[in-house]
Design a binder for these strands. Structure first.
Length: 362
DNA sequence: AACGCGTGGTA
DNA sequence: TTACCAAGCGT
């Protein structure tokens, strides 16, 4: 039998049984889709919020955040009018905090420019902060049933396998190629169910490890299954190892129950989050560096006690080794960045500082 | 284009 | 334990 060349870029779909694939996928999705909070309505705002939360984040992690967020901010107007601190607090612990800031910024634009209606034009919607190619397609297809591709990690994994695409899925052109494939596959289908079906198949059957090919609805037409290549796909370049940073943090209490805290810059790592005063410094210099920072920045001139407690926090791209220092000062210093603990608890802290809080202030 | 950006789950 | 990952986006 002649060897077919599956990975010719121009026409991977030329000999693919589109109709069979679509029917199998849609039938399977109708029967096996999960009941998820954001699938209970077609409200574009609710779909949008869920898609932002789900970026690089597991469904089980998102669920409680989503429920609570929709209670606090049930409409675009409610989110637009909220205080930024309130929004950050609702996002506390979910990670990638710029998502929250961008979402509120975008929702404010929807309220101010589009009368509170999420735009139905994909290009207009994609111009909003935090809305990239995937989120554009997901919201436009799920909420408005537009034939837009929504290519996320799940979809790339499914297509890489079914169509035997061996390009690195970390490359932008690979995603664009897959978007073109979806434009053909989705044509004439119910777009919401088709895109969600593709994603759901990746989440439940066509998983990264131990995929359930034996019960897969499209096994018959899966080229990777045919070639016994399922476990080798998708191809993804390794990311380089994380850098380590040694940090020194100061938990400083006043005798009347206040703590010294600071807010991180609005951009970059843990953007806009609150924390205990912290510096990066080599172990030998950390106490002195921290004391100097406190004196220069907050006019707090103290000798810190080394608690000899250290903790490690792993981010996606770096590792913090945090040494904790402590001091108690008279109550007369309560101003500026000093805040009563009960008030400080209403602010959003990253998980690593929540750990420090629990260790030092209970 | 490649890198920065969180956190918790899993093998 | 280490490594990889989970519904990406901004710069």
């Amino acid at each position: 039998m002649m060897q077919r060349s599956y990975d010719t870029k121009e026409d991977v779909l030329a000999t693919f049984p589109n109709q069979y694939f679509r029917e199998q996928l849609l039938q399977w999705y109708e029967a096996h889709q999960r009941h998820l909070p954001w699938r209970e309505s077609k409200d574009p705002y609710r779909i949008w919020v869920s898609e932002i939360m789900l970026q690089q984040t597991r469904v089980d992690t998102v669920k409680p955040y989503y429920q609570q967020f929709m209670e606090k901010f049930p409409t675009p107007e409610a989110l637009a009018e909220a205080h930024e601190d309130q929004v950050m607090k609702a996002w506390e612990g979910l990670g990638y905090y710029s998502r929250a800031r961008n979402l509120q910024s975008a929702v404010r634009e929807v309220v101010n420019t589009y009368g509170g209606e999420v735009p139905q034009d994909p290009e207009e919607f994609a111009s909003l902060k935090g809305v990239g190619p995937y989120t554009k397609g997901a919201v436009m297809s799920i909420a408005y049933d537009l034939e837009e591709p929504a290519v996320d990690g799940n979809v790339m994994r499914v297509l890489a396998r079914v169509l035997l695409l061996t390009d690195d899925i970390g490359k932008q052109r690979t995603r664009k190629h897959m978007e073109n494939c979806v434009r053909i596959l989705i044509s004439g289908t119910p777009p919401s169910d088709f895109n969600q079906g593709l994603i759901e198949l990746g989440a439940l059957i066509c998983t990264p490890k131990n995929p359930s090919c034996d019960i897969c609805p499209v096994q018959e037409v899966c080229r990777a299954y045919d070639q016994q290549m399922v476990e080798q796909l998708p191809v993804k370049a390794k990311k380089q190892s994380q850098k380590q940073q040694t940090m020194a943090v100061a938990v400083i209490e006043s005798e009347d129950g206040a703590v010294l805290i600071e807010q991180r810059p609005k951009q970059g790592l843990l953007a806009g989050m609150w924390q205990f005063p912290m510096v990066e410094a080599p172990p030998a210099l950390r106490q002195q560096s921290l004391q100097q920072y406190l004196k220069e920045t907050y006019q707090v001139d103290v000798t810190l006690e080394d608690t000899e407690q250290s903790l490690e926090h792993v981010f996606s791209h770096l590792i913090w080794k945090v040494r904790v220092f402590h001091a108690i000062v008279p109550s007369s210093m309560n101003r500026g960045n000093w805040m009563q603990k009960t008030e400080a608890e209403k602010l959003a802290f990253p998980v690593v500082h929540q750990k420090i809080w629990r260790q030092q202030l209970r």
